[in-house]
Nucleic acid binder design. Structure first.
Length: 213
DNA sequence: GCGACAG
DNA sequence: ATCTTGTCGC
């Protein structure tokens, strides 16, 4: 992949988001039936460790993984989160043996103040379908029903930008949004398939585990 | 103006 | 994100 342009200032980063967000496609390719999903996560110590982990959607077993260590590329600023982690994550993705079919990002996609969160950014730069699963939301939502699979709309400025999705009975929901080349129904379905047992997707859990070693 | 703010 | 023990439950 080409080396992405990387901003040095907050204003430049915002400008990059506003220029790239027009490329987001909130629609899955026809016949999109991924057999695997790839989780992305970063662990913070004195340096960053990025881990990516591909999981078989049928067995939920890890079939491929890679890690990458390096410095942060940008300070953490809410709304500009992707600029901190993405360069390292992209390097880790390049080390995978098999090309990812869909990226499951730890954070938001369209559920972002400028509609261009980490999942959109990762999807647009790689051209790979992507979705975001956040542990916390930036927008507004009413609590979904109490059972696994129940969901409610996540909105921002009156616009639906994602879903608050209950992945386990009586457990705090996760926040699902489109990143790129998927629709919200497909994203929701994938997240439920990845969460038969725990609140967070198996992709995120495995990537997190990998990044801590 | 003040506080809140994905990870 | 991270600083941190024990404890309850499957």
């Amino acid at each position: 992949m080409d080396t992405p342009e990387w901003p040095a200032t907050e204003a430049e980063a915002v400008a990059v988001q506003e220029r790239l967000r027009g490329q987001v496609r909130a629609e899955a390719p026809s016949g999109f039936r991924p057999k695997t999903a790839t989780g992305l996560d970063v662990h913070y110590t004195d340096v960053l460790t990025a881990a990516v982990c591909t999981i078989d959607l049928e067995t939920l077993e890890v079939v491929d993984s890679a890690t990458c260590v390096g410095p942060e590329s940008f300070p953490y600023i809410p709304g500009l989160f992707a600029f901190r982690e993405l360069p390292l994550l992209l390097r880790a993705l390049e080390q995978l043996t098999t090309p990812p079919e869909v990226l499951v990002c730890d954070g938001q996609g369209l559920a972002h103040p400028r509609r261009f969160g980490l999942a959109c950014h990762a999807g647009v730069l790689t051209g790979i379908p992507a979705l975001g699963v956040g542990k916390n939301a930036l927008g507004d939502f009413d609590p979904p029903g109490p059972r696994r699979g129940d969901w409610s709309a996540l909105t921002d400025g009156g616009e639906v930008v994602g879903r608050a999705l209950r992945t386990q009975d009586d457990v705090k929901p996760v926040f699902v949004s489109v990143g790129h080349l998927v629709d919200l129904d497909t994203a929701t379905d994938l997240v439920l398939r990845l969460t038969p047992r725990y609140r967070l997707p198996e992709t995120t859990r495995q990537a997190d585990h990998l990044a801590r070693r």
